[in-house]
């Protein structure tokens, strides 16, 4: 996936300004930024939920327009996208069917077992605890073996086990040649998972991103850059 000089205006407000970003296959790119910096907007553009006001956004070499859906894209948003009245199994089966996965019910059952919800797969999602619901949502995002993962603060509210699971799934995706765009406001997650970390501040993305090849510890570098943006330069662009 790549974005070139992408801008998004919502109302009169320019939420994203000339964001340029590449998420190459086999890597995890993290966009780190405070709330309201335009992270979610960026992800929604990447998911094809919105069209950019300016600039060019490509996935798998294809320009993303207003109505862009791709079965290879997996999207995990703030909320679960699940139906409370349906069981976990029915929910996942539905999404598997939606994505045209062969033998949807078996795929759904396997994923639920992997996230540790086998015992609850026939329970309606309404009765799941918060953590269980998040595990199910996680399974949902991976239902069609995505090659481009778009994750919006995926670690929020996950327990240790689920965090490890997500880490493992992300690594598995990149190992299989997939690309991951992860959005977070947590430095630790960014430093742990990212191959590159871009810092988003008031709709502008730090360019170039911090990479693992640079000198010094990766985490320290990310932290330093982030601090510099956050406190140093003050209200840029205002």
């Amino acid at each position: 996936m790549s974005a070139v000089a992408v801008a998004k205006r919502l109302g009169e407000r320019l939420v994203l300004r000339d964001v340029t970003l590449a998420v190459p296959a086999g890597s995890v790119v993290v966009v780190l930024g405070p709330n309201g910096s335009g992270k979610s907007t960026l992800l929604k553009l990447a998911a094809g939920l919105w069209a950019p006001s300016r600039g060019r956004l490509e996935r798998f070499g294809q320009v993303v327009g207003t109505e862009a859906t791709d079965p290879r894209v997996g999207y995990l948003g703030h909320r679960s996208f699940l139906y409370g009245a349906l069981s976990g199994l029915d929910n996942l089966t539905f999404y598997a069917r939606l994505y045209g996965v062969p033998r949807p019910r078996e795929r759904a059952a396997r994923l639920l077992a992997e996230v540790g919800l086998r015992r609850f797969q026939h329970e309606p999602v309404r009765r799941y605890s918060r953590g269980m619901e998040q595990r199910a949502a996680l399974a949902r995002a991976f239902v069609a073996h995505p090659q481009l993962l778009l994750l919006d603060e995926p670690y929020t509210g996950l327990d240790v086990g689920a965090t490890g699971l997500l880490d493992q799934w992300i690594r598995r995706t990149t190992a299989a040649g997939g690309a991951v765009l992860l959005i977070t406001h947590h430095l630790d997650e960014a430093a742990r998972m990212g191959d590159r970390v871009g810092i988003l501040w008031r709709g502008r993305l730090e360019d170039p991103p911090v990479t693992r090849d640079g000198p010094g510890g990766f985490r320290e570098q990310v932290a330093r850059t982030y601090e510099a943006r956050f406190h140093g330069s003050g209200p840029s662009g205002a």
Binding site: P34, N35, G36, S37, H185, R202, F230, P235
Partner: peptide, 8 residues
């Protein structure tokens, strides 16, 4: 004005 205040 609100943007940077409620971060983290």
């Amino acid at each position: 004005v609100r943007t940077p205040l409620d971060s983290m």
